[in-house]
Design a protein around this nucleic acid. Structure first.
Length: 483
RNA sequence: GGCCUCAUCGUCUAACGGUUAGGACAUUGCCUUCUCAAGGCAAGAAUCAGAGUUCGAUUCUCUGUGAGGUCACCA
């Protein structure tokens, strides 16, 4: 039986933080591998020593850990038997040399002695003539024998139209203009990405190459290498770009793409992020939008990947995040909310912050008002929670409802106070009765304002329940006195 | 500029060549206990344009337009 196991990879370069566009492509590869019970490889494409950023690999690891995207080979796994997955150590460079030699022996590669200045000149000339620059048109007739220290170029032997099949886009093709001699190995001895990824993909037995559309135009060159090597091509799965909000450009660091870990810091749920990203440029064709990670793996299919780019929409992400938050058991949710509140010095400074009963009662009203955990900090800094812990200062002018006079407001508050002091256990019903008799706004607004000191807040019934009858009485009295 | 790719509500998207072009986010309105939030209900909102094929095009073909990608000893 033929081994048809799916092997995919995520191959970012360690050049800084990881943004949602990077993860998006990796996610699709991961989903496809997991769906098929295949292998998902994390490969750090560190062929450019100049652009490498210290700590970038740790960063990548953190981002994937947060999103719970696991890998079977790569950083931290596989050990020494998993070559080229962590970094290109000197011994591993031999692999590229081996493949390079095969190409040289078969006349598919040659040493390039052109200097940078000469290259610039050629490019400039082509530009002046309004012609695309093709190195192969200036190919030296008698290149010296290649040795490390000079660049090695691939030699396009046959100019032809290249046709290939993409799992997402179907048949793609490009004319001979797309074919050019490109650098395989740089003068520093490291392979270019263009060469390294092909060698790595072959060595690792990658079956599906998931990648962004920026690689479509270089595919003819890649295919030429596969043909020269006599190696089987992988299945290309071209994933649409994630574009910036309001923009139409592919997400890149320069376009203000947001660091994935920033979303972690803002308290988004990894499952929500996965769900959201999966739905950009893919959908199962049903009307379901909220998926658990397991459901996504189950239902994901590369044949339903979209062709055109998708704009990142944070509002929808927020909605999706809230939907995922709703799935968290209430107890767990409340514990998280409480720890968020107590972790904030604006609140923990109050003695009442130790009142577990109070905290427990606040949780549901907070949960209604947030779509991600960091919203709690925003609520606190906006002073939306302070009044639960300490009596608010009141602006007498704001106690009155609409055109209500001070006297009317005071009278109504006195009646409310009477109810609270009556000893009748059912304050809620009595308050509602009063409100219906005297006018809802006329009673409820002053009451609510007296309790919260805010023009916007939960309703007075909820506040009464949270604050308790004694604290409520005190606050009503204070309001009456201030009028 | 050459080459390549893409094109359905503001956004993400659904629709064997036959649907009143569906859903979701957002927006607007109404309801629910005064305000806010949450929830419920409802509304507005799209097939880029022009030809062709067909009894019938969102769907197939061509042209145009628009958008994106790519033309490195970057990935």
């Amino acid at each position: 039986m033929q081994d048809t196991k799916v092997v995919t990879r995520f191959a970012p370069s360690p050049t800084g933080f990881v943004h949602t566009g990077n993860i998006h492509t990796g996610l699709f590869a991961w989903l496809w591998a997991r769906k098929n019970g295949g292998k998902f490889i994390l490969r750090v494409e560190d062929t450019d020593k100049k652009r490498e950023v210290a700590g970038a690999v740790d960063y990548l690891r953190d981002a994937l850990h947060w999103l719970e995207i696991d890998w079977d080979e790569g950083i931290d796994v596989g050990g020494p038997k998993a070559p080229y997955t962590q970094s290109l150590r000197i011994s591993e460079l031999d692999i590229y040399t081996k493949y390079a030699n095969i190409l040289i022996e078969n006349g598919y590669a040659y040493a390039d002695t052109t200097t940078e200045e000469e290259l610039d000149l050629l490019r400039k000339k082509a530009e002046e003539q309004k012609k695309p620059f093709l190195y192969r048109e200036n190919r030296p007739s008698n290149p010296p024998k290649w040795k490390p220290g000079i660049p090695l170029r691939f030699k396009i032997k046959e100019l032809k139209r290249t046709v290939w099949i993409d799992a997402v886009r179907g048949e793609l093709s490009a004319g001979p203009e797309a074919l050019d001699d490109f650098i395989l190995i740089k003068s520093d001895g490291y392979p270019t990405y263009n060469f390294a990824h092909i060698v790595d993909d072959i060595e690792m037995g990658i079956t599906h190459v998931t990648r962004g559309q920026e690689f479509i135009s270089s595919t003819p060159n890649y295919i030429a290498v596969y043909e020269a090597l006599g190696a089987a091509q992988p299945i290309y799965v071209t994933v649409p770009h994630v574009m910036g909000e309001g923009g139409r450009k592919k997400l890149g660091k320069r376009d203000g793409a947001k660091d994935v870990l920033q979303y972690m810091k803002e308290g988004y749920l990894p499952d929500a992020m996965i769900n959201f990203l999966a739905l950009m440029g893919w959908n199962p064709g049903t009307e379901q939008e909220i998926f658990s990670r397991e459901e996504l793996i189950e239902i994901f299919d590369i044949s339903k990947i979209q062709k055109s780019g998708a704009q990142f929409n944070e509002e929808k992400l927020d909605w999706l995040n809230k939907e995922h938050m709703k799935k968290i058991p209430e107890e767990e949710r409340n514990a998280k909310i409480k720890s968020k509140i107590l972790g904030n010095p604006e609140i923990s400074k109050f003695e009442t912050a130790n009142n577990q009963n109070l905290l427990e009662k606040i949780c549901p009203t907070i949960f209604d008002r947030i779509s991600k955990w960091s919203d709690i900090d925003t609520l606190i800094s906006d002073g939306e929670l302070t009044y639960y812990f300490t009596a608010p200062s009141l602006d007498p002018e704001k106690i009155m409802w609409k055109k209500q006079s001070k006297d009317e407001a005071r009278e109504n508050l006195k009646k409310v106070l009477e109810i609270f002091e009556s000893g009748n256990a059912d304050y809620q019903s009595s308050l509602m009765e009063l409100a219906e008799k005297e006018g809802k706004g006329e009673v409820l607004w002053p009451t609510r304002y007296a309790l919260s000191g805010k023009e916007k807040s939960p309703d007075p019934f909820t506040l009464l329940n949270i604050l308790g009858i004694n604290e409520s009485k005190t606050r009503i009295k204070k309001a009456i006195e201030s009028l």
